[in-house]
Amino acid sequence: MNNASEQLLSDVVAVLSDKLPEFNAERTKSILSAVISKYHIKKVEENEPHPDSDEKLSMFLSAKRLEGLSPITLAGYELELRIFFRYVTKRMESVTAADIRAYLGQFDHLKMSTVGRKLSVLKSFFGWLTAEEIIPRDPSARLKTPKQEKRLPKALTVAELEMLREACRTVRQRAFIEVLYATGCRLSEVFGMNRAAINHQSMSCRVVGKGNKEREVYFSFKAMYHLNRYLASRTDDGEALMVTERRPYRRLSRRGIQREIDVIAQAAGLARKVSPHVLRHTFATLTLNNGAELVAVQELMGHSDPQTTLRYARITEERKREQHKKYLVQ
């Protein structure tokens, strides 16, 4: 037997000796020793994740992968759960609501929306374990998601959008701005775009969004013009729509795309942070304010719920006055 097995045997015999007055410690130890010798036992240290967590995590991720969750979502789930396992080093059926509260309580420096996402992952994980009858109860069931700030990045004005365009110094930069704005795509969707997926005749492209859902997005004439200039300037044969500037050419990372937008925004002299999501928000706001139907914008953005699309729209005072004059029955 290894040291962990001997320690387990001694601990079990000690507990039985304490509880049972007539207990024969030596005989019981001899009998149990023969049984335990057939197993390899490893002691779980207090400061390391319980081995049980790896097994449960693997099962959970496999199930969610079959449900069609994207690799990005699955990677996010795994990261959040491994952080939790390092803090709560118990078997999953032993985790309590108090453990989860204590874990989330250490993130008081983070925004409520971030803490809410962490809790959402835990609810999904423990809810699944309970539904599959792997654990008897869900420790996260009675925990309420914290009230989140209903703030979204403010859309760029038409003037600010033009400032971004004017600040572009390369055909690559201009193509990035036009593609992100015209399609209203998420950063992950633009990151995954390939050259071959561009339909130049219909000026469209199919992208894979949240929940592994595919949809068609469209380019403007301006976006196609600058995109074609960018593609014509490239000397590589890579499949990615956006690639690095230096050899070996490869698909530009999400961080690389964000960094390029940051460079353009700084050159434009815009005081606030501009991100791909700000350009997505700008697409939604300007198209809705210009008279686009809510359902159409919802489909273009890949939202399953129209309420999500409405959160992106902030109608201008000028547009409100125009709508009032146009539609009020006198």
Rank of each mutant, 00 (worst) to 15 (best):
E239P: 08
T235V: 12
L270E: 03
L252Q: 08
A265M: 06
A284T: 06
V274A: 10
R254D: 14
P248K: 02
E260C: 02
L279D: 03
A292T: 05
L288M: 12
A268K: 04
M242T: 11
D236P: 03
E293D: 15
Q298H: 11
R247L: 08
T244M: 10
G256Y: 09
E239M: 10
V243D: 01
E299K: 11
R255V: 14
T287Q: 12
A268T: 07
A296F: 12
A284G: 05
V263P: 00
H281W: 08
G256F: 10
V295C: 12
G238V: 07
D236G: 05
G256M: 09
R250T: 07
T282G: 03
S253H: 08
P276F: 05
A284R: 04
V263L: 11
G291E: 13
S275C: 12
V263I: 14
G256L: 07
P248R: 02
K273A: 14
N290W: 01
A292Q: 09
S253T: 15
L286D: 01
K273R: 15
K273M: 13
R280Q: 04
A267N: 07
D262P: 00
E260N: 08
P276T: 04
L294Y: 10
E260H: 00
V243F: 02
R255I: 14
K273H: 15
T282S: 13
L288D: 02
G238I: 06
G238T: 06
L241R: 03
L286E: 05
E239D: 15
R250H: 10
G269H: 11
L279G: 03
L279P: 01
